[in-house]
Design a protein around this nucleic acid. Sequence first.
DNA 1: GTTGGAATAT
DNA 2: GATATTCCAA
Length: 564
Amino acid sequence: MICTEDDQLLGWKDFPKGLKVLLIDEDCNSASVMRSRLEKMDYIVYSFCNENEALSAISTKTEYFHVAIVEVTAGNSDGVLRFLESAKDLPTIMTSNIHSLSTMMKCIALGAVEFLQKPLLDDKLKNIWQHVVRKQAFNAGEKDVPESLKPIKESLVSMPQLQPVKSAADDKSSNETEPFTSIPENNNEHSSGCDKYPAPSTPQLKQGVRSVDDGDCQDHTIFSTEQGSGEHDGDTKSVETIFNNTVAEATVQTSPPEQQGQTILKEENGSSPHQKMEADIATSSPSNDCCDNSSSHSAEPIKASGRHSSGGTRSNKKKMKVDWSPELHKKFVQAVEQLGIDQAIPSRILELMKVEGLTRHNIASHLQKYRMHRRQILPKEVERRWPHPQPRDSVQRSYYPLHRPIMTVPPYHSNHIPAAGQLYPAWVPPASYPNGLQVWGSPYYPAWQPADSWHWKPHPGLHADTWGSPVMPPSFGSYPPYPQNGEVYQPNGMQNRYSMLEKSFDLHPAEEVIDKVVKEAITKPWLPLPLGLKPPSTDSVLHELSRQGISTVPPQINGSRCWS
DNA sequence: GTTGGAATAT
DNA sequence: GATATTCCAA
């Protein structure tokens, strides 16, 4: 998986055969045993009886060592520690019969890559090469990297696939046969059963890659928990936030200011783009000042949280959860108001909001909540303003413009869309807005209030005189106080013309309205004629139409589609 | 097939 | 409670 043909060790066939191991063991017998075991594994062993000899050999550079194995005894710990300090660049594995946590900690703290308790298993010895690869691959400078190992570093560093947890079987089946391809394999073993091969399991303070290992382990655990027993199928983009935080933290804490930690961190961030996005937005949102000009919205990613990235190549079933921050909600409200609440449908709201990543479904869901809030709040306001007895049902449904009486929208001006905040001043001055009308989100959105103060007529029939020319057909008086959906609200083509009509009635004389309607009918003869005019008005329209040469009208005009 | 809206699930 | 998802009608 992680290694391709190109990643092969150049000039190092059968790696790790020939790896040079510096062995320090004061016990000659133990040393010879260890040597023979290592040599069976095709390592080249240089054994020393004490640290000084070894350090001398290192300093004189008579030989290059890839890895050191140092026996720690009760009596030589000082020397061992000294060795560790002096040979920081050499991956050093401690072995010992003693079980002293403090000694282990000291060694590890001083840079030992691993502390192995004796007796040593073959597997552990066999895998010591991993420390070499790791050390070389993630060493800060290139200077210490043998030419033969540089390909390893490059391949490892550039390999986000290091993170995912895949089954060992996968790796084995798909990997090349090059020895170092077993790095992830071993890590997999490590992560899928963290103690199966404990060899490279010691926390490695000097090398960021350790956090990858740990991350693997944690990742696996957390991820499994998150996803259930099932199907994370190696999708690294699905890693939960907690995983990223954990890894990032571990990386930062354990990595020296070298590059490897940062590299890993980048990879982690990259594996969860939405998280970065969230962070970015979270910091930028307070400065959002787009409320002043609702028409100048610029596409803006949403702050979203969730376990999956929306941009993942894999089909993540779960969408990210939209966080309707005040700013986002403000945009929403502005869009709704800009559209006019009767035109505020998810798709249009979505267009106006211009928020990247937001979907129609998100809008619809939010709109649903929005309306519910309105539904809860408006009755109170309505009750306050219109203390007339009225059917409860009507009040409850009045939140929705389709059910409200006509004339709740500003005068129609051909293409003018009133800006938010300018919607209904003619009816109720802002000063008269009740303080108690702190509706959903209103603290954030002054422009919201007018929209909330729908001063619709609870009884159009009763108050028609108050609001200008009635627009109900003659039979309307016998109707329920509130037009049902599909009555006042004209579906399809009827809607525009009619809403235009209704929008015009409050301020425009009937004749002017008729003119508008006539013009509309002329320019868009395919649309049905509006209903809702009083007979004289309708007659006037029809007369004007015939005068203009339009003699036929859609059947709806005479039919009873809306009013019967 | 798309959309909006309500109901329901998470 | 907030949001996503599902269902259904248009």
